[in-house]
Amino acid sequence: MVHPDLGSQMVNVCSMMLLVTSFAIVAQRRLSACVDLFAVQSVFLAVTAALVAFLTGIHHIYVAAALTILIKAIIIPMILKKVIERLNVQREVAFVINIPPSLLICGALVILAFSVTEPVASLGFLLTKDSLAVALAIVLIGFFTMIARKKAVTQVVGFLMVENGLFLGATAAAYGMPLIVELGVFFDVLVAGLIIGIYTHRLQDAFDSVDVSKLTGLKE
């Protein structure tokens, strides 16, 4: 058995890396790098989950970790990469809010997440209790990414970041959800990824762009 302090520190380092990759996505200018970073984040998520599984001996979390790697670190990034390849020219992220202010806003979101979860976490006794704030922060940053970036691909990445945050939160708060629920969620994410991928293609065909702000043209 690993020393509990050491274990919780390893979990902390991993959840820190999750947060750092979220910020890296926010600070990224190239679409493909965004997707790569998302894949990296998912790997860290899987490692966190596996660590928790190892430390607590709850085996079904291993399954969730493996699925995370398979779906979020391999399949979905592949789909997104394909989409980006089809875009040929426009490989830059388009901004509603520029990088430095985005970073500052995300920093504020982290502080918000931290202060909101403070009373809950201080009651906690699980070794993952510190990850709760990180999880909430990742959810908020993901949401923010969806708002502050224009292209459909970045919105998918934002959505998936929200999902990663929720998964981390579930692991942090309750050592994961029941296996059946998790399987359902993974399936949902996969389907969502596929649908959005197809939708992005359609968007490209219809408007010659994946800038979702073009959709405002539909209201007329």
Binding site: L103, G107, V110, I111, F114, A121
Partner: peptide
């Protein structure tokens, strides 16, 4: 360069936040 230094600022802010998340209570 502002992007890069923005990242540095955020990293140090996160360092501070994490310090309190892990040590504060």
């Amino acid at each position: 360069v502002t992007d890069l230094l923005g990242v540095a600022f955020i990293l140090s802010l996160l360092a501070l936040v994490f310090f309190y998340i892990l040590r504060g209570r």
